[in-house]
């Protein structure tokens, strides 16, 4: 088929609603936020605008609120992502390699957290981890923690990590099971006949072949938790805070649109970076691993 000028115009027209929608509803707000972060636009409609780096200076102030927020949201989400990676890998191996009665039911149930609203998941974990909640009490009874130890709204964000793991684990499992399905089963059999036991095969064959999906999945899970709002809002403490919370407070409670926009810009840069890495990894996988 020749893709003449007319043909190309037609293709463009088919995509026009999509492009139009996102231009108005997504690209415009992002451009405005970017302009606001430099003082060139006023999201809060305060009149007068002029170029300034004042908001960026405020954000990058060493030891200030924002650097703490950025650092806290980063390491806290990274820890959760790491825990998810390990648990999800074990679960994916379990679901992919082991056949048992009732497997269908278990594979349906483990996905439920994917569909529960974040806010509810966060709140459910709050009721469990707050002093007097089932898990907090159980751990205190075991003597692992004190009776008044805070597992929610604490400065390490323990509650945030727990809820984030619960929410995002199934997503990672789904992704990894998909990656395991792509491995030709005879490769695994070859490894077994060559003298490798199951775990040795996991280490030498299965894991190396799933690294791209593993990294890509971890990146997606990370950015989801890094920018999440509900979980740190319900389970986070008053210090340090996630950056999503400081944005909300700056903009909604205090009308500080400038520094709020800078944080939003940081989020967007992180998102674009991760999207870029993700597509690159996926493309590499399609190119290299196809034969298998």
């Amino acid at each position: 088929m020749e893709a003449g000028k007319f043909e190309r115009l037609k293709l463009f027209l088919y995509m026009l609603p999509l492009i139009g929608f996102y231009s108005v509803m997504f690209i415009t707000p992002i451009v405005l936020i970017f302009l606001q972060s430099l003082g060139l636009y006023s999201l809060g409609h305060m009149g007068e605008t002029h170029f300034t780096l004042e908001y960026y200076k405020k954000f990058f102030e060493l030891g200030g609120t924002y650097m703490h927020a950025l650092w806290f949201s980063t390491w806290n989400s990274a820890v959760a992502a790491l825990i998810i990676a390990v648990l999800a890998y074990l679960m994916a191996l379990f679901f992919h390699f082991i056949e048992f009665k009732g497997k269908k039911i278990v594979t349906a149930i483990y996905k439920i957290p994917l569909f529960i609203p974040y806010l509810i998941s966060a709140f459910a974990w709050w009721t469990l981890l707050t002093p007097g909640g089932y898990i907090q009490r159980f751990l205190a009874w075991l003597g692992i923690i004190g009776e008044t130890t805070q597992l929610v709204n604490d400065k390490f964000g323990i509650g945030i990590i727990v809820a984030n793991v619960w929410i995002n684990l199934p997503y990672m499992v789904v992704l990894l099971v998909g990656a395991l399905k792509m491995i030709d089963p005879s490769i695994i059999e070859a490894s077994r006949t060559l003298g490798a036991g199951f775990w040795s095969t996991v280490k030498n064959v299965i894991f190396p072949l799933t690294i791209p999906s593993f990294i890509a999945g971890s990146l997606l899970v990370f950015i989801g938790m890094f920018g999440a709002f509900s979980v740190p809002f319900i389970l986070g403490g008053s210090w340090p805070k996630y950056m999503s919370i400081t944005i909300y407070e700056d903009v909604v409670d205090r009308g500080e649109w400038g520094v709020g926009s800078v944080q939003a810009v940081v989020y967007m840069i992180a998102a674009v970076l991760i999207a870029y890495l993700y597509t690159k990894i996926m493309r590499g996988m399609r190119g290299g691993g196809e034969r298998a």
């Binding site: 030709d184 490769i187 006949t193 072949l209 034969r291």
Partner: peptide, 15 residues
């Protein structure tokens, strides 16, 4: 078992 196998689809380790 010390028994090795040659596969129809080769089953070489792609990595």
């Amino acid at each position: 078992r010390n028994i090795t196998m040659v596969f129809q689809n080769f089953a070489l380790f792609p990595h």
